[in-house]
């Protein structure tokens, strides 16, 4: 009987095209789509340069970050000091290459915490509905209504010293800043994911999976979660940017990393008193933060579009 079922003429045309373009893996397809997105590609290149710089820069520009030279203090950029020097004559390029590691690592780690916690809370709320949902959304709203900066300062003030003793000064502050910044940014993700779950769980393709006998976890992992990740990716990139800025804010307020660990925010903090006589000191770390945040945002946009097979690109 199957032989009597006519295939579409269009179906045959489609399959010819399919046969020609067959050996395309999903990864290669996503990369092809990503490359079409000019700004995202530019963002990826800039981000790549920044990451390469902070990872390998200290070897390519082997100047110690704490070499004090009072003879060369507050120098404008020159061949000897491409980004100039600070008030102690320390080389700013070397300090920025080192500090960038901290800033980017804080950004990525805080984003991961925000996205993982947010997705988990949102998914549980969206799937369980009822009382669990109401309780979780109360907690989310509670966190959203907290005054963040004063609370950040309080938490850091309270726990900084004990953590320093426990895991060392640098790692201690890192853990604290990441936990605090990430812990205050999961709420938008949770709301986003919950809203997506509430709408997606009623979609017919999820119902079809249920009719096929898919367990709840399979419905979530295979059907609901992949379709809710688009906005989460964008929120995640915004979180990286926001975390970099939050770390800068903390360091700028003098509560982030100590002066001997020159994150970009810390450099800005140190530079603020010399803005009129040595603007280069603030311009380079500020520009680096700006470039990093912007390129991450474009990168996120491109990633979302590249991973969405519906989008024609």
């Amino acid at each position: 009987m199957a032989g009597s079922i006519p295939a579409f003429p269009t179906a045959n045309a489609l399959s010819d095209a399919a046969a020609r373009a067959l050996p395309v893996t999903p990864g290669a397809e996503a990369w092809r789509r990503f490359r079409r997105h000019r700004l995202a590609l530019a963002g990826a290149v800039i981000l790549g340069i920044l990451v390469f710089g902070v990872l390998f820069g200290p070897w390519l520009w082997p100047v110690p970050i704490n070499e004090i030279d009072f003879g060369a203090k507050l120098k404008t950029p020159s061949w000897q000091h491409p980004f100039g020097t600070d008030d102690l004559g320390q080389d700013l390029l070397a300090r920025m290459l080192y500090g960038g590691r901290i800033s980017l690592a804080v950004g990525v780690a805080a984003m991961l915490i925000a996205v993982i916690v947010g997705t988990f809370v949102g998914a549980v709320a969206g799937m369980s509905r009822g009382r669990v949902d109401i309780a979780l959304m109360w907690i989310t709203d509670l966190f959203l209504s907290l005054p963040q900066i004063p609370l950040l300062l309080l938490i850091i003030y309270l726990f900084r010293d004990s953590l320093k003793v426990w895991v060392g000064p640098e790692a201690g502050v890192f853990v604290l800043v990441v936990a605090v910044v990430g812990g205050f940014r999961w709420m938008p993700v949770a709301r986003l994911v919950r809203a997506q779950f509430l709408s997606l769980r009623e979609k017919e393709f999820v119902e079809a999976a249920r009719a096929l006998g898919a367990t709840t976890s399979r419905q979530v992992v295979r059907h609901i979660l992949p379709n809710s990740l688009g906005p989460v990716i964008v929120a995640g990139t915004i979180d990286v940017a926001a975390a970099i800025i939050a770390e800068s804010t903390l360091s700028f307020l003098g509560l982030g990393f100590p002066p001997d660990i020159p994150s970009w925010g810390r450099l800005l903090f140190d530079a603020k008193d010399y803005l009129d006589i040595a603007p280069h000191w603030a311009l380079f770390p500020g520009g680096a933060i700006f470039l990093a945040v912007l390129s991450i945002s474009f990168f996120g946009d491109g990633l979302r579009d590249a991973l969405d097979p519906r989008k024609v690109m």
Binding site: I5, A7, A11, S15, A18
Partner: peptide, 11 residues
């Protein structure tokens, strides 16, 4: 069986 082509499974 439903009148589609084998290659369609990759689309």
């Amino acid at each position: 069986t439903v009148g589609l082509h084998a290659d369609h499974r990759l689309r």
